[in-house]
Amino acid sequence: MSQPDVSAAGGPSTGVISKIENAKQPSYEDRVLAQLERALRWQPGSAQQVLDGGEPRAIDGLPSLQADLQANVDTLEEEGDSPITPQLRALLEQAQRQTRLQLDELAAKVDEQNQLIRRLLDERKGA
């Protein structure tokens, strides 16, 4: 995904993405990392793992599953004009739309829970 794609998918601005990619800061706000994770469809905490030298974790592995399915459909299309290929393409697109909606709903719920946890931790620190 390009920086504008990530930003358009709900991630941070392209300027902030550039700073992250070029390690211009030692750390980033949780809000920024959560935006990045949501746009890239990573599990919470994955952005920090990457910054620490680790690997991100996809939400339920669905993006990689979609990529595998897309590759299989592309292979079928390359092998010839099978009458089933348009049907597979339509099913794939429908599955991708449904998956994106479900992932967006899940990401919104995770964000809500993260905000609640942060608020409770802030309250606990202030008490």
Rank of each mutant, 00 (worst) to 15 (best):
M1F: 10
M1W: 09
S2M: 04
P4M: 06
D5T: 07
V6T: 15
V6D: 05
S7R: 06
A8E: 09
A8H: 03
A9R: 02
G10V: 02
S13C: 08
T14P: 05
G15M: 01
G15R: 07
G15Y: 01
K19T: 11
K19M: 05
E21R: 05
N22R: 15
N22H: 14
A23E: 03
A23D: 05
Q25M: 09
P26T: 09
S27K: 08
Y28A: 01
Y28E: 01
E29Q: 15
D30A: 13
L33W: 03
L33F: 03
Q35C: 14
L36N: 08
L36W: 11
E37L: 03
R38F: 07
A39H: 10
L40D: 10
L40F: 00
R41G: 02
Q43V: 05
Q43S: 11
G45T: 13
A47C: 11
D52C: 04
G53E: 08
G54R: 04
G54F: 01
E55A: 12
E55N: 08
P56I: 08
P56E: 04
P56T: 07
R57T: 15
R57Q: 15
A58C: 07
G61I: 07
G61H: 04
L62M: 15
L62E: 12
L62C: 08
L62Q: 13
P63S: 06
S64F: 08
S64Y: 09
Q66W: 14
Q66C: 14
D68L: 13
D68K: 13
Q70W: 11
A71L: 11
N72E: 13
D74A: 14
L76S: 12
E77N: 14
E78N: 13
D81Q: 14
D81A: 14
S82F: 12
P83R: 00
T85Q: 00
P86Y: 06
P86D: 09
Q87I: 15
Q87L: 12
L88H: 07
L91E: 06
E93Y: 04
Q94D: 08
A95P: 10
A95I: 07
Q96Y: 02
R97V: 01
R97A: 05
Q98Y: 04
R100M: 07
L101G: 06
L101P: 00
Q102F: 01
Q102W: 06
Q102V: 11
Q102D: 05
L103Q: 10
D104I: 01
E105N: 07
A108Y: 03
K109V: 10
K109C: 00
K109P: 00
Q113R: 12
N114C: 02
Q115R: 15
Q115I: 02
L116E: 08
R118P: 00
R118A: 12
R118L: 08
L120I: 14
L120E: 10
R124D: 02
K125V: 02
A127T: 07
